[in-house]
Nucleic acid binder design. Structure first.
Lengths: 109, 109
DNA sequence: ATTTTAAGCAACCAAAAAGTTGCGTATTTA
DNA sequence: TAAATACGCAACTTTTTGGTTGCTTAAAAT
């Protein structure tokens, strides 16, 4: 399909998935598919698909007990997102870059 | 369409857009659409669309000079991503959460 | 003044994503 | 053992996305 980091970014790009992930993070115990579904307006199958996407991004771990599948959030992969963002943090507070670009721009034209 | 943060997450979810953004960040001067296009294998129109998405996410600013449109990266909106990730950082290094969830899980079943 | 260049707009296309329903199966519960 | 529950799988629909081509317009260069 696509590289790992893109899978991760895509996983968190969907608002419903961010909500599911959040619900799992703040939950005091692992939640089954049905338990998660009950908190959202979409079908159980819809939830199952989202969970699969989250799982493939490493953001959810699943523990099967009998007929139930308990989901845990795993925030660790978000370290990668953090690393990605951190690189650009050096550019966001100084408008120096903006100014420089502006000057170069004017000069060139 | 959708909320601001989702626009932002979607903008950076595409690998080509991340590449374009990166190219603009490290560029020493603003780049025109044609200049950006020359660095990628997709058509100018494709680039234009990506730029529009980035612009709507606030990640690119455009300066029109005559018939050219010069693009600058603006990393500031990424602060929002950083904030989002930071919240979850408290969960990623202690496997305490995992253990806790595991125990709750076992207990419930 | 003519030609070249930069880029927007619109229409279109294919693939991916988000969601649905129906059905089968395994595990629990009664 | 029979009924209920939890879930996966597969097929299908709709919307979104990433990309294209063709055409037009405006600015610059010759």
């Amino acid at each position: 399909m696509q590289d790992k980091i893109t899978k991760l970014f895509k996983a968190i790009a969907d608002p419903t998935r961010r909500d599911i992930f959040h619900a799992l993070v703040i939950a005091t115990s692992a939640l089954s598919i049905t338990q998660i579904s009950s908190q959202f307006d979409i079908s159980r199958q819809g939830i199952t698909k989202h969970i699969k996407t989250l799982e493939e991004a490493g953001l959810v771990h699943i523990n099967t007990h009998g007929r139930e599948r308990f989901c845990n959030a795993n925030a660790k992969p978000l370290k990668e997102v953090s690393k990605w963002v951190e690189f650009y943090s050096q550019f966001w507070d100084n408008s120096l870059q903006d100014l420089e670009n502006y000057l170069n721009n004017s000069k060139d034209v």
